[in-house]
Structure formats: C-alpha cells, structure tokens
C-alpha cells in the first residue's frame, strides 16, 4: 500500500524535483557509478577498434578503418567457427545443468547437517580448490588421473587395465565440467549460505509447530528464501553464457584436439589474438556483449512473467 501511493506521488514530481529530493541517495551512488564510468565505459570507447585494423604503434586514431572486416571471423560461416560455437553451446548447457546447481545442492546439504562442527569443517575444506590457478588444477588432474598419473601407474603395476581419462576426446566436455565443479563448487556455496542465514528463523519455528516435515520445510521455507538469489545469479550467468572458460581449455587443447576443445574464446585467440589482431578480439567482445544483453533482458522478462524480481524490477 505504502509503496504504491509513493509511486503515484513520485510521478507527479518533475525529474529535477525528484533528483533534488533524492540528493542523499545520489550522493551515495556517485562514487561507485563514477568509478564504473571512468574505468569501464570510458575505455569501452576504445572498442571502436573493432572497426579498425588496429596496430598499437599507430594508436587508435592512426589505425585504418576496416569496416566489418574484423567481424568476418564470426559471420563468415567458417566450419571452424561453427565447431567452436557448437562446443561452446554444449559446454554452456553442461555448465547450466551441472555446475550451476552444484553449490546450491551443497549449501542445502551443509545446511541440513545437525552437527555444526562437521558443517564448518566440510565447508572449510571444500572451498580450498578455488584458490588454485587453472595451470595448477590442470596439472593436478593430469598427475592424479593421467596416463602416467598416480591412478594409472598403480593400475599398471598391478597388471590392471588403465583408464583413459585425460586426453580422451570423448570425455573432454565431461572432464572440463568436473574440473569446474571440483574447483568452484565449495567456494560458490558461501553466497547461498549467506542467503540461507538471512531466512527468518521464526518461519522454521512456525513450520515445525505446524508439524511440517523436513522435506516440507525445505520446500516451503528454505527454497522461497533462496529463490531470489538463485534466479538473479542464473540470469547473470546467462548473460555470460558464451564464455565457458579460456585458460582451462587452452591448456588442455593440445592433447584432445580442436574438434572437441575449440570454443569461442579459444577460437578468437587462435584466429586473432595470436596474430596481434586486437580489432578481432574487440569485435567478438562486442558481439558477445550484445548477445549477453539480449539474453539478460529476455531472461529478466521471463522472470517478471513468473512474478519474480529478476535483476531489476519492471
């Protein structure tokens, strides 16, 4: 009620009056917004090199215009590009289905533990891999599971059949996905744990007084408390869905081959960056950004249709 009457009142004021009224909030927002504009949007102007044959020694002004040439790498329908797009979409799907929910499930699992101590210990162990760089993670996976790694060395010296995991093209997408789960699931739980701790405990008490089972509590109290943040994170992830990891993949590309490992970011690297084509990288960045905007806006709309907040309200 209060909300609605305010909105009406707001519409009656002119923009200047409203801004004057909100001067404290404007002041609050100023430093952060200024920093984003200065260090994000101003350099974004430099992305005009997407339309240039940019050479650092000539400068942005001095480089020749090249029209849409830099975009050709995306729009020329090259089979190598389509292959990269296919792998990217496969990985995006795998990541949405397996990587995204993993920390939510883990947070719920941890949350449902009765022993506070076990919960904390488990959480403190599982977040650790987040701090390893991909170089180390890839090396560790190889040394544990590779053809000459600990597992296979053991199997071989006991005359058992070895397992072909690392460098196996067929398993590569699965391997990438499990590496991400291994590295980041524990870390990603902390946001959900924070959301869980924000849930009003009286709701649980009320539910248990009503004799609700644990399952029903999960469904009627916990999930509604988490839903907002889950949807928010999912929409933000969607905006980034053409990014499926660069360093992790390029470090392992040699072994499995580009047929299964080339994704958009490695494609841009192998076809532009490696030859000093800064314009191509900028062009692909622009296209990815536009795709991201479309996906985020669309997802947000869908969220609104289902009565959710999304990233921003309508």
């Amino acid at each position: 009620m209060l909300q609605r009457s305010k909105t009406r009142q707001q519409q009656q004021l002119s923009l200047g009056q409203r801004l004057l009224r909100d001067k404290v909030l404007l002041l609050f927002a100023l430093p952060g917004t200024a920093l984003i504009v200065a260090f994000h949007y101003v350099p974004l102007l430099g992305n005009v090199i997407a339309f240039k044959d940019y050479q650092p020694f000539l400068g942005i002004g001095g480089s020749d215009w090249s029209g849409w040439e830099n975009f050709a790498v995306i729009f020329n329908g090259d089979p190598a590009f389509l292959r990269a797009l296919k792998n990217t979409l496969i990985l995006t799907c795998l990541q949405s289905i397996f990587v995204f929910p993993a920390p939510i499930l883990l947070a719920l699992l941890l949350n449902s533990l009765f022993s506070e101590r076990i919960k904390r210990i488990a959480q403190s162990i599982l977040y650790l891999p987040h701090f390893m760089s991909w170089v180390i993670v890839v090396a560790l996976f190889q040394q544990m599971l590779g053809g000459g790694g600990l597992l296979n060395n053991y199997l071989r010296s006991h005359d058992l059949a070895t397992l072909d995991i690392i460098g196996n093209s067929e398993l590569f997408h699965v391997l990438l996905t499990s590496q991400i789960i291994w590295k980041d699931t524990g870390w990603a739980t902390i946001l959900f744990l924070a959301a869980l701790s924000q849930i009003d405990s009286q709701l649980y008490e009320a539910a248990s007084v009503d004799g609700a089972s644990r399952m029903r509590q999960l469904w009627h109290v916990t999930m509604p408390g988490l839903r907002g943040i889950i949807i928010l994170l999912f929409i933000l992830r969607l905006g980034d869905s053409l990014t499926v990891g660069f360093e992790q993949i390029i470090l392992q590309q040699q072994a499995v081959g580009r047929d299964v490992s080339e994704v958009l970011d490695t494609y841009v690297y192998n076809n532009g960056v490696i030859g000093g084509a800064w314009g191509v990288a900028a062009a692909v960045g622009l296209v990815k950004g536009i795709v991201g905007v479309v996906l985020v806006l669309a997802a947000n709309k869908v969220a609104h249709i289902f009565g959710e907040q999304g990233v921003y309200s309508r």
Partner: peptide, 26 residues
C-alpha cells in the same frame, strides 16, 4: 524503491558486466 535515478544507474552497472573493455584502452 523510490530512488528516481535508480533504474538508469542500475542498468549502467548491469551492462558494464556484459561488455569488457580491452586492455589497451584501459
């Protein structure tokens, strides 16, 4: 909820996530 400049600023923040500036301009 009543912040008049809220929506445009939020969009400025949100879209900055989706476009990354190059290392040279930065």
């Amino acid at each position: 909820p009543g912040f008049s400049a809220g929506r445009p600023i939020l969009l400025v923040v949100l879209f900055s996530m989706l476009f990354s500036p190059g290392i040279i301009p930065t």
